[in-house]
Design a binder for these strands. Structure first.
Lengths: 226, 226
DNA sequence: CGCCTATTTGAAAACCGTCAAAGTATGTGG
DNA sequence: CCACATACTTTGACGGTTTTCAAATAGGCG
């Protein structure tokens, strides 16, 4: 089942960087591969959290539903990134739903098996602590944005954050951007259209390219001072 | 310096429950006590994170500033609770500012000393993983609320969350509630006044008591269906 | 080519923030 | 113990940002 591929993905995943080849082979023994077509459910909010995953290929979307029926995107994950781990380590149900946003390949770890592994490799626990700390930092930054910034600033910050992670070509639709930024598709379109007219961005269906990062950064810092 | 007091606080702090008395005494050796009057700064956003704290007495407010100058309250911490730890474990500057909301007593741990301790007590690392996972869950729940719910729903959810943690008497001003919920003082007052007229809450200066939790829970789930 | 989804635009209204002013508890110092 | 300062609470009016609803256009995939 493509062992060598798995090991390479595990190696680049951040929390397993501290493991040597022997330890990685141990880890691989408890890894299970899973292939998904686009739009397939991985887990649902409220479901018992017995597994977490590392993305080997593709894009995964993690969402929560608001009482209005609005779907909020909490995060996207790409190759090498981990998701579902917090629920597993807290021993509570998944707090959000996950599904593939494209065809994808995942590496899954079962809770009990992984906790055993963790007992024998305490240095991995410290890497997980750092990972979760980073996630928390990002969540708090977004909380600040959602609670204190206007829509235009939120969108500018979201694009800048995405381009820092993914490069200047940002592979998201306006609907996805709006669900990440806590606004509506229409408002997102109106603002991005304006930015395109001003030469800040270029865009095709489902993809946005930042042309003038400096101006976008100014916008992100506050309303344009007349 | 009040050793026995410190040990009792450490014991009730969640992440140190797994330690026996000997280990707690080792931990106490690297603990430093700090006393604060109300409104004193503990650390500032952007400052190098070399310490984290456990609250022994009092109430601590952790905030972030929006570009508009609006102050957003990320969280409040009371006795037994830990704060500042994520930045320390990630090795990055504090992502938010902390100050006392009342007279307070803190127990501080220095980064390097604590990391040494952690090396020798790996089971604590797992407790920290669980703690951070819980924080992340809460942050994501609030992200959903801020991104997808209206102000009235957000306030209802905030009150319910606070009362679940603190009991039905909620010791916060309307300004604090608004800064936690991503709205303004005036809007918070208007909504709480309406709730008071309808008998959902009772309130004195700086304190709110939930009278009808069931109705509040209904409100939190969506706009009142006419 | 046709279907599905993404993008676009417009108009109206709702929600909420902003600004201004006044009233009311709390505690401090004289 | 009272007066005063301070911070919290309250109310009203207004306006702006953003959502909502509706309908049309356009791009990509089978």
């Amino acid at each position: 089942m493509g062992n060598s591929v798995s090991i390479n993905i595990l190696r680049q995943s951040g929390i397993f960087k501290v493991l040597d080849d022997n330890e990685l082979r141990d880890l691989e023994k408890i890894a299970r591969e899973r292939r998904l077509v686009a739009g397939e459910a991985i887990f649902w909010e409220g479901e018992d959290a017995d597994r977490f995953y590392i993305v080997a290929q593709g894009k995964i979307k993690v969402t929560k539903l608001a009482s209005t029926g609005k779907e909020i995107i909490l995060s996207f994950f790409g190759p090498g990134e981990i998701f579902g781990e917090a629920a597993v380590f807290e021993g509570k149900p998944y707090p959000a739903s996950a599904r593939s946003a494209s065809a994808a390949r995942l590496i899954g770890f079962h809770k009990d098996e992984f906790l055993d592994f963790l007992q024998q490799h305490p240095q991995v626990a410290l890497r997980i602590v750092a990972l979760l700390s980073g996630r928390l930092r990002e969540a708090q930054s977004r909380l600040r944005d959602l609670a204190g910034e206007r829509v235009e600033q939120r969108l500018a910050r979201m694009l800048l954050m995405l381009s820092a992670r993914l490069g200047s070509a940002i592979p998201f639709t306006r609907q996805e951007l709006s669900e990440m930024s806590g606004t509506t598709t229409e408002t997102t379109i109106r603002i991005l259209s304006q930015w395109r007219e001003r030469g800040l961005i270029r865009s095709t269906r489902g993809k946005i390219v930042i042309l003038d990062e400096a101006k976008l950064r100014l916008l992100a810092e506050g309303p344009p001072q007349i």
